[in-house]
């Protein structure tokens, strides 16, 4: 019993003190993972805010956008032109979703819209495999002028390795979030988006076009998906198994709140860093491999005490 308590409350902290450089490495890796989880979660938040839909297709949008970019480049299209065309493809996707799905399902229960996004997921999987094949593809990292290689920091004779692509991911994610924040707060369309998020009926009554807003929202989520696809792809290639990682955004959303952009970021970082620390220092107690479910434990605890998440709006149902 004593040894068990020591292995839970003592040994992990002793290890942290004995190898501070390794602790820093763990925290850095968790930070980068958290940033990437936050990016994926951000796509969910944008659509949920504007339409109340949990977009199950966000994960495959990450893969689809990444595959489109790489696939176009394989056809001989220069990298930045391929990037521009991919943005166009994501706009067409947003427009098609609004025209073919959302418009026809207005006023349907949320669960119907959720099911529609599951259908959309499968359509995009099939379409992606039909067009690009199922093989793993390398992200065009250098062609997009993204940095490769690594830098080493040796604090007190230790070793902390920083991959340049990870640093770039953190910077680009931060810039994207600032751009989205400015877009929401400073532009007319952004204010309309916020109005729609607050109250659909009231927005309609002052002349805001819901259809137009939905296209913009899905396009914004598409841009976020493309950035997430490039960054994940640069770390570990683009393949269809990448869409499963999007499920990691679920505990992030529970933690941060489904309607909060800052919540997605803070939630992503807590999940990213938390799961790495627990996997490395407490994982051996459970036979390792706890990373896959630990995030959901954190989310469940938050769900019990704060169902709306850290930054989510308090749920008030008037009867």
């Amino acid at each position: 019993m004593g040894s068990f308590i020591y292995s839970v409350l003592g040994d992990p902290f002793v290890q942290m003190l004995q190898m501070p450089d390794f602790l820093m490495q763990v925290v850095w890796e968790g930070f980068v993972s958290g940033i990437l989880y936050a990016l994926i979660a951000l796509g969910f938040v944008l659509i949920f805010k504007a339409s109340g839909i949990f977009n199950f297709a966000q994960g495959i949008m990450v893969v689809f956008s990444g595959l489109t970019l790489v696939g176009l480049h394989e056809l001989g299209v220069p990298a930045f032109l391929a990037l521009f065309i991919t943005l166009g493809v994501m706009y067409v996707l947003a427009f098609s979703v609004e025209r073919l799905v959302l418009r026809n399902l207005v006023n349907q229960p949320d669960i119907i819209l959720f099911m529609a996004t599951i259908g959309l997921t499968n359509i995009l999987i099939g379409l992606g495999q039909w067009i690009f094949g199922g093989e793993t593809k390398s992200m065009i990292t250098e062609q997009l002028w993204l940095p490769t290689g690594s830098s080493v920091w040796e604090p007190g004779g230790g070793l902390v390795i920083f991959q340049h692509i990870d640093i770039a991911a953190a910077v680009i994610a931060a810039l994207l979030i600032i751009c989205l924040a400015l877009f929401f707060s400073k532009t007319k369309v952004g204010r309309a988006l916020r109005a729609v998020a607050d109250d659909h009926q009231a927005s309609l009554s002052v002349g805001i076009s819901l259809n137009h807003i939905w296209v913009i929202t899905w396009f914004a989520a598409g841009i976020v998906a493309l950035v997430a696809g490039i960054m994940w792809g640069a770390r570990s290639d683009v393949s269809f198994s990448l869409q499963i990682i999007a499920l990691k955004a679920l505990p992030v959303l529970v933690l941060g709140g489904f309607t909060s952009v800052p919540g997605a970021i803070v939630g992503g970082l807590i999940i990213g860093i938390g799961e790495k620390l627990f996997e490395i220092y407490w994982g051996p107690l459970f036979g390792s491999g706890i990373e896959g479910w630990f995030a959901y434990v954190i989310a469940l605890i938050f769900l019990l005490f704060r169902p709306q998440g850290l930054f989510g709006e308090k749920i008030i149902e008037r009867v």
């Binding site: 390794f22 490495q25 763990v26 890796e29 980068v32 993972s33 793993t136 994940w232 770390r235 570990s236 290639d237 393949s239 198994s241 990448l242 499963i244 990682i245 499920l247 990691k248 799961e275 790495k276 996997e279 490395i280 994982g283 390792s288 990373e291 896959g292």
Partner: peptide, 29 residues
């Protein structure tokens, strides 16, 4: 299966354990 493309935790553990050799039984991505 869902961690196939997010293995940083496993490789941090490899760094911690310092095995002399690594053998892989992997598939796909």
């Amino acid at each position: 299966g869902k961690e196939m493309q997010a293995q940083s935790a496993q490789w941090l553990n490899v760094r911690k354990e310092r095995p002399d050799w690594m053998i892989m039984w992997g598939w796909g991505s």
